[in-house]
């Protein structure tokens, strides 16, 4: 069975540091998606991550307008300093730009803010009210902060990205405890780990991601294609679960 792939973990744009084999141009992303059999992708902009969310997010609209297979994700942060729109203004901007997910980089080495309610509360409340999925690289927050986030915002779908192969002792109890936590696959590489997790928690909260342009697109697709699961479960992971999350957005 040929799977329909919808990649939840891609970015576009030039980074300060790059690796051999990587790329940054939109055309190249679209070409490689086609090469690997990925039909659609959620994308955020590297300038939103590495420089300024307010500036980088706005660069996406030109890209996604010309490429319907690419769907915009905005990098968000709290508004208190005036560097970023307040939640009510942001809500309108996200609606206007057909944004389908948000991403945060709160670590000290990145955007350097607290995700506790005093700082990010109104932002996260707005995302939760609109059921906008929030993507987080686990090394941006650490595991203990994820527990706090999931408990405080039960209506907020939180997708854990780049979890690596060492996180099961956190992932299993988090998925048992919280229905609003999801797992992205690109670096969830414990051996037969997806099969084992599906057996315990089901397949409806696992989302295909590649991590392109940094990580391998070909490997990410082959990994899901060769899962020893029923076809319906593989299809949910490949695209169905992400489509359902996007369909639930109330924005």
């Amino acid at each position: 069975m040929a799977l329909d792939f919808f990649d939840c973990n891609c970015c576009i744009g030039r980074s300060a540091v790059t690796n051999p084999g990587s790329f940054y141009a939109t055309d190249e992303l679209v070409s490689r998606m086609s090469d690997y059999g990925i039909g659609r992708a959620l994308i955020y902009h590297t300038i939103a991550r590495d420089h300024s969310p307010a500036e980088g997010n706005l660069l996406l609209s030109d890209i996604t307008r010309d490429n319907p297979s690419l769907i915009p994700v905005w990098v968000v942060m709290p508004h208190h300093t005036g560097e970023f729109p307040a939640p009510d203004e942001l809500e309108g901007q996200m609606r206007k730009n057909s944004v389908k997910a948000a991403r945060i980089f709160p670590s000290a080495g990145r955007h350097n803010f607290s995700i506790k309610p005093y700082s990010a509360g109104s932002l996260l409340e707005m995302l939760a009210q609109n059921r906008i999925p929030l993507f987080i690289d686990i090394y941006e927050t650490g595991w203990e902060s994820i527990d706090m986030l999931l408990a405080a915002y039960r209506d907020l779908p939180v997708v854990l990205c780049n979890t690596g192969y060492r996180g099961d002792r956190y992932i299993y109890p988090l998925m048992e405890t919280y229905g609003n936590v999801y797992l992205e696959t690109s670096r969830y590489l414990s051996h037969l780990g997806i099969e084992a997790l599906c057996k315990k928690e089901g397949s409806d909260r696992i989302l295909f991601g590649s991590g392109m342009p940094v990580y391998t697109g070909a490997g990410a697709v082959f990994y899901i294609s060769k899962l020893m699961l029923e076809d319906k479960d593989k299809q949910m992971i490949a695209s169905g679960n992400l489509e359902r999350l996007i369909g639930d957005i109330r924005l």
């Binding site: 590489l189 037969l192 082959f222 990994y223 294609s225």
Partner: peptide, 15 residues
């Protein structure tokens, strides 16, 4: 393997 699932690694070579 079994530290790491082999499928992603094989896929990147096949691709």
């Amino acid at each position: 393997m079994p530290f790491i699932d082999p499928r992603a690694c094989l896929g990147r070579i096949l691709g």
